[in-house]
Design a protein around this nucleic acid. Structure first.
Lengths: 257, 257
DNA sequence: CGCGGCATTGAGGCATATCAATGGTCGTGG
DNA sequence: CCACGACCATTGATATGCCTCAATGCCGCG
């Protein structure tokens, strides 16, 4: 149900293929030296054009936008193994900015090189397409997060998402992972106040669902956390199948069925 | 600055290319008869696979997902001229459902036909890519809506977005357009209660920003509405042109400082 | 004529925002 | 080694925007 057909990981479809590091690209771009960028630097600035596609080998980045009132909305986090920057290439000017959180190691691939490669390899095209689609899927999840979930749900969901994505990248140890995010970054990602993020994290800790030690996060009770924030394992299909024809499902079934 | 390079419409980059109806496809698929579907029908159901790409010629649809608690989140609306269903093709199973709001007229194009055409036409590939990217951009805007904007802002933003998208499809008359949405659909799209949507619409009407007569919506004061909901005029190209190097204001210059 | 879908309005409660202050940690310079 | 400032986490008190529950009205349709 949640297979992507390519990397058969046991993850919700949305995440499985995103971190897909198109080996084709990486291999092909082997000649390109990787670039080091230090933390808190802008890589792509909204409004500027860009002719480069990036591959992130190590470190965290995030995609964001500054709103008219000065608020910052973080659209998603970019983890190791991810490709980014295609959107900026396709538009005259990038819609969003991308900045580093930690020190990162990147490959910068000129757009025309991608194009040349794409002509020879339909596989590559599909891989890129899939990656773009996955990005959209994650955005969709975040949209649901922001508009329909409570603070606990949003943060729990974010933690689970990061855990699973890092897991698929082989970057977790047991149930723990490194999360180099300040509470301010989290708040800008989930659309809450730093104050409230703090309180919510505390309440999750008090509930023994997670543990936090510095930047190290441990999921203490995966099951309970998933339940709490509606991270349905295999969330595709279940609800939909119950209402095969109906777009008018018993929505607002106030009580959870 | 907000041009897409293809259809030089005076619209925010995000919308400009979305309604791009790849003439290539339409022309090529001329042999395919268009199908009529009546209102309130599911076209694609989340969790099922799909081997067809659709072009919407007339009518409104929407992409949605039912959450575990029975809530329905609407991700976006699909207007005339739009292509949809590619995501469902790329995943083993579709992440979202798509249903009609009004009666619609669709072209259904088998995936393998798309693939064959794509091999011959890099242009088509680019067009599809651009369309997918635009979809993601709209999702991004909706994400910002939901997480950072007030009720008035969200609804104002939705109305402006629909207005501009319909305008680019030639479906507005002056400042008015037909909006076949119930308040419940609106509430599921912007993440509010129907009750609150109702109150907010009233307050927008009282403020003489919009007028509503049945399903006919009129933007009375485009400027004021844009300002109200942070629909940066810059977005429309104006301010963007004023800040040729960047649409992002001078705040928060580097990631976070 | 009655019923179902949709819009509208009121009253009260809760989750999150806002404002304000404190404490801990780390790097840096004296 | 200590003093200091920058940055981040934490906590309390209060305000408010949106939700929830509940009721009424309107209109089209069988």
């Amino acid at each position: 149900m949640s297979k992507t057909g390519r990397r058969d990981v046991d993850l919700p479809g949305a995440f499985a293929a995103l971190a897909l590091s198109p080996e084709d690209i990486i291999h092909e771009a082997a000649g390109i030296p990787s670039t080091q960028v230090s933390r808190k630097r802008d890589i792509i600035v909204a409004g500027e054009h860009c002719e480069t596609v990036f591959i992130n080998h190590a470190g965290w980045l995030f995609r964001y936008k500054i709103l008219h009132n000065g608020n910052r909305q973080i659209l998603d986090f970019i983890l190791p193994g991810q490709v980014f920057g295609l959107q900026a290439c396709l538009f005259e000017s990038s819609l969003y900015s991308i900045a580093t959180i930690t020190d990162v190691s990147l490959s910068m691939i000129p757009l025309d090189m991608i194009e040349r490669m794409a002509e020879r390899s339909p596989e590559l095209v599909k891989a890129l397409f899939r990656s773009a689609t996955c990005e959209a899927a994650i955005l969709g999840e975040h949209l649901i997060d922001a508009s329909r979930r409570s603070a606990r749900e949003r943060i729990g969901h974010l933690l689970l998402e990061l855990f699973l994505r890092l897991k698929s990248a082989g970057l977790v140890e047991g149930m723990s992972f490194e999360m180099p995010l300040t509470q301010e970054l989290i708040s800008d990602a989930v659309g809450l106040t730093t104050v409230h993020v703090n309180r919510t994290l505390r309440s999750l800790r008090d509930a023994k669902l997670i543990a936090i030690d510095g930047s190290n996060v441990t999921i203490l009770d995966f099951e309970a956390l998933s339940r709490l924030c509606g991270f349905e394992n295999g969330y595709l299909g279940e609800a939909a199948r119950k209402h095969p024809t109906g777009m008018n499902p018993p929505r607002r079934a106030t009580a959870d069925d």
